[in-house]
Amino acid sequence: MSRPFLKMNGLGNDFVVVEARSAPFSPSAEDVRAIANRTNGVGCDQLVLIEGSDTADAFVRFWNADGEEIDACGNGSRCVGLLLMQASGRDEATFETKAGVLTARRAGPTQISVDMGAPGLSWTDIPLAEAMDTRGVELQVGPIDAPLLHTPGCVSMGNPHVVFFVPDVDVAPVRQVGSLIERHPLFPEGVNVGFAQIKARDRIRLRVWERGAGLTKACGTGACAALVASHRRGFVDRTATLELDGGDLHIEWRASDDHVIMTGPAQIDFTGVLP
């Protein structure tokens, strides 16, 4: 049967979104790779599937472009929140993911806020292969006596993140180090690799090498993880603007309930039918 889809993006991080509440869809890893292929397929960073739920507005699943299913996707969550609110006419939507139940709210004409829940900060939450203080783990890139990068922070936002702090992210070896660290033995489930430049107490410049997708224009969970990792080291306050290649995200790590709130744009690019 033909399968309609929506092409969406959040700050240039792009998605193929498929509605599967009325007609089940179970893509294989090969299907996902074919859909995500930018030469012969539709092309996307992630595939997003909206399924039925008995307790929320929907159950949402995410796959990276390499065909691996993942538990969480920040920019994709904003896109789903937009769709569910458009369908219901309400200014709030809740949806289940493998990382937990998320709540999305309208934050302006083009802005969506998503409560991403509390970050995981234990080494078992990431997870790491051995016990370490996740404020600054024992990991370095380059010569032992003069490493290029070292002592990154680690955070789980429903998916694993490692955050290196760099003086200038625009000249940092994001592609080389990202591809090297993504499958490092310290991270048994792989890891998203962030490179954060602290510009002020309320501003971070960030680039992210995403596990299974490579360098993307924006990573929502990566922005959340960078704010948390930076605050834990005392570099920034609990609220900051994250400057990504695709645009800005506003991230707040609330002291009241430990939840991370991500606010940014989401938009529909076009519709189509999967081949």
Rank of each mutant, 00 (worst) to 15 (best):
M1E: 05
S2H: 14
M8G: 09
N9F: 01
G10D: 12
G10T: 09
V16H: 02
S28Y: 06
E51M: 13
E51V: 00
D54F: 13
D57N: 12
N64P: 14
I70C: 02
R78L: 05
S88R: 02
R90A: 15
D91G: 14
E92G: 02
F95G: 05
F95H: 08
E96D: 14
E96H: 10
A104M: 03
R105S: 11
G108P: 03
S113I: 02
P119V: 00
G120E: 04
D125F: 04
L128M: 09
R135N: 12
Q140T: 04
D145R: 12
P147N: 02
L148G: 09
P152E: 11
C154S: 08
M157Q: 01
P160N: 05
V162I: 13
F164W: 03
V171E: 10
V171S: 15
V174Y: 04
L180H: 13
E189H: 09
G190A: 06
A196R: 09
V208T: 04
A213T: 13
A213H: 09
G214H: 06
C219M: 01
A225I: 08
A229C: 06
V236W: 03
D237A: 15
T239G: 08
E243G: 00
L249D: 03
H250I: 14
R254S: 15
D258H: 13
G264Y: 03
Q267G: 11
T271E: 03
L274T: 02
